[in-house]
Simulated scan of single mutants.
Amino acid sequence: MATHHHGRHRVAFQPLRRASARGCQPACAGRAAGAGFLSAASRLEPIGYATASTWLGQALVAQSHQGICAILLGDDPEALAAELQRRFPWAVLAASNSECARQIAPLIGSMDTGVMPAAVPLDLRGSAFQQRVWRCLMDIPAGRTASYTDIAMHIDAPRSVRAVAQACGANPVAVLVPCHRVVGRNGALRGYRWGVERKRALLEREAAWAHLAATP
């Protein structure tokens, strides 16, 4: 996995729009529109996936009929496929056919360019609380961070900081649902299920992209 050794940017947190108990406010809800949030996988559900080498290491992108249901990072494609099967035990997994590969290719390419495709349909599966957290993570701009406490406050669950951290750890869609942008209250990097070094590298690269975008 490629890493970057220049100093880590401390990116200031821009306040999120407050979310109600029913979900996030429009900026967040707009990202979730059409995402097809489902509570459980269907028996024998077909899920296509593709793996590729990226600057973050190996990336596996999986897609159901509703949308992207997983982006997993690691070093071993076979281990990533096994993790996908554990996440969707009743699914029939298929290494990508040409149609699936065509749809997934822009996502894999975006990990190197930082330019995410517009209106990517997501199929996020988890509890109602997890989905509230995940939708609000998508409202943190690239180049900025929020603390677990910030997220808890903005979903009106100020006593659920630990549950927010657990929801971040359970996030199945790396990068697109940017749990890597959540840090400790003092800015310290906390655990990242795909490795703290990947988290640091993502934050540094996003800060650099944001700086370039803001430069006249």
Rank of each mutant, 00 (worst) to 15 (best):
R8I: 11
Q166V: 01
Y192V: 00
A82M: 02
A101H: 10
G67D: 03
A82E: 05
A29W: 00
V61Y: 05
A82F: 03
A41S: 12
M116W: 11
A118M: 13
P89T: 12
S98Y: 03
L44Y: 14
P141H: 00
R200A: 02
A21P: 05
W209A: 09
R185K: 08
A174Y: 04
R185D: 15
D150A: 07
T215R: 11
T149W: 06
F13V: 11
C100N: 02
P216H: 10
W209C: 04
A27L: 14
N186W: 04
A214K: 06
L203F: 00
L202H: 04
Q130N: 12
W55M: 06
I104V: 15
P77T: 05
A40V: 07
D139P: 01
T54E: 01
S110C: 09
V92W: 08
V164H: 02
R10H: 13
R102M: 12
G67W: 01
P26V: 02
R185I: 09
V183S: 02
M116D: 04
R8T: 11
I140H: 01
M116S: 07
S110V: 01
S53M: 11
A201S: 11
G74H: 04
D150T: 03
R198Q: 00
A52W: 05
E45L: 08
G143I: 04
M138H: 01
P172H: 03
S20L: 14
R190V: 03
R132T: 01
V115I: 14
S39R: 09
G23E: 03
G36I: 03
G23L: 11
A165F: 02
G23V: 12
A32I: 03
A40M: 08
R159Q: 14
G187P: 10
L212Y: 05
G187W: 15
P178V: 03
D112N: 14
Q85I: 06
P121K: 06
P106V: 07
Y148V: 06
T149S: 08
G23I: 11
S42Q: 13
L72H: 09
T54D: 00
A19T: 03
R17C: 11
Q14Y: 09
R144Y: 07
A62C: 06
D150V: 07
S39D: 14
A59S: 04
A119T: 04
A94Y: 10
A40W: 07
R190F: 05
R205S: 12
A59T: 05
I155P: 00
T145H: 10
M111H: 06
R43Y: 12
P141M: 02
D75W: 06
A210D: 08
A214W: 01
F129V: 10
A142Y: 08
T145N: 10
D123S: 10
E206D: 13
